[in-house]
């Protein structure tokens, strides 16, 4: 049985944006190019384009988030869409309403796009499988599975600084096991064709058979950083630690915290990234986070243009398909 990629419509255009996995390089490049052209909008005095005028976008957040929700909201508004923010974690599901019930109620309000964050891996796929044909779903983070817009804004940032992806070596450091960001970054980087992706961390934070994603595993940060072009630090997600994965923050910082001293092992022009929010003194030294090699705040800025690009691409696919 051959199943069509749920993310694509009949014409093979991007309808939902759920995961980077399974998307072609050209699609990713198109999103980056669109984001590049839209990034000018943010610099204008009137920060709006009418691309999604008349469209309604629902930010459906089952898990708390400030930064991601805000940038999605800004992105939607700059595309002239109407935005509805719903934080469901505290309301409906607690009352026993199922996810599907919540979804059906919202669909009845005639919206065009759901931007979904949920604590369960696969939640965005589930929703995409059950929405009406005219609705697009964008995954704003599902469990430990995927966070594709974050990965795309990271790619955007890397491309701005490095130009070409091919010659790059990238190290992703920290809690790979629980990180949806890491998984999406790995898929994006390998699809865009970098030379090497390294994942660095202790075995307790390394998912089983992670090599199958096309990465090299390092347990020593010093070795993992050697001659890389890009260092991506992951947040040590305390709230996700369900077991005894690490003895202490102190030891973690000693072994895997990024310091100026350690950063010298990377290439002289290496950039430092972090999806935020950062834990100063846990995974990264303050002076690195605020230093000249850090592009952490640029990532946040780029998040708006990239999300504008993803939203307009997905909703644009309906126009092509005649479904809008």
């Amino acid at each position: 049985m051959i199943r069509r990629n749920i993310q694509l419509n009949e014409q093979g255009r991007l309808r939902h944006f759920l995961t980077i996995e399974g998307l072609k390089r050209q699609m990713l490049v198109d999103i980056l190019d669109t984001a590049e052209s839209l990034s000018g909008v943010t610099d204008q005095t009137v920060k709006k384009v009418p691309l999604l005028r008349g469209k309604t976008i629902v930010n459906l957040f089952f898990e708390a988030s400030t930064r991601t929700r805000t940038t999605f909201e800004l992105a939607a508004k700059r595309l002239s869409a109407d935005v509805l923010n719903l934080n469901i974690s505290a309301s409906a599901t607690k009352k026993g309403e199922t996810l599907l019930d919540t979804l059906n109620n919202l669909q009845a309000m005639h919206c065009d796009m759901f931007v979904v964050r949920h604590a369960d891996s696969g939640a965005a796929h589930f929703i995409a499988n059950h929405v009406a044909p005219h609705i697009s779903v964008i995954n704003a983070g599902d469990g430990s599975h995927a966070h594709p817009t974050q990965a795309m804004l990271d790619m955007f940032t890397i491309r701005r600084h490095k130009g070409d992806f091919y010659p790059l070596s990238v190290a992703i450091v920290g809690d790979i096991m629980h990180s949806r960001v890491a998984r999406s970054q790995i898929h994006a980087l390998t699809t865009l064709g970098v030379t090497e992706v390294r994942v660095v961390g202790p075995k307790t934070l390394m998912p089983k058979d992670v090599e199958s994603l096309g990465v090299h595993v390092f347990h020593s940060l010093d070795e993992g950083l050697r001659d890389v072009d890009v260092v991506i630090m992951l947040r040590l997600q305390n709230e996700r630690m369900q077991g005894e994965l690490l003895p202490s923050e102190h030891e973690y910082y000693q072994l895997y915290g990024l310091t100026n001293e350690r950063l010298k092992l990377a290439k002289p022009d290496a950039i430092v990234m972090h999806p935020g929010p950062i834990n100063r003194g846990v995974e990264i030294e303050s002076s690195v986070a605020d230093g000249s090699r850090s592009v952490i705040l640029q990532q946040v800025t780029h998040g708006i243009a990239v999300r504008m690009a993803v939203m307009s691409t997905c909703l644009g696919s309906h126009a092509d398909g005649g479904a809008a």
Binding site: G122, G143, P207
Partner: peptide
């Protein structure tokens, strides 16, 4: 633990907690 699928490359890919 909280596993719901076999622990291996699939659980890693899908981000689902694995049962070793």
């Amino acid at each position: 633990h909280f596993g719901c699928v076999h622990e291996g490359s699939i659980s890693t890919r899908l981000g689902l907690p694995g049962i070793p």
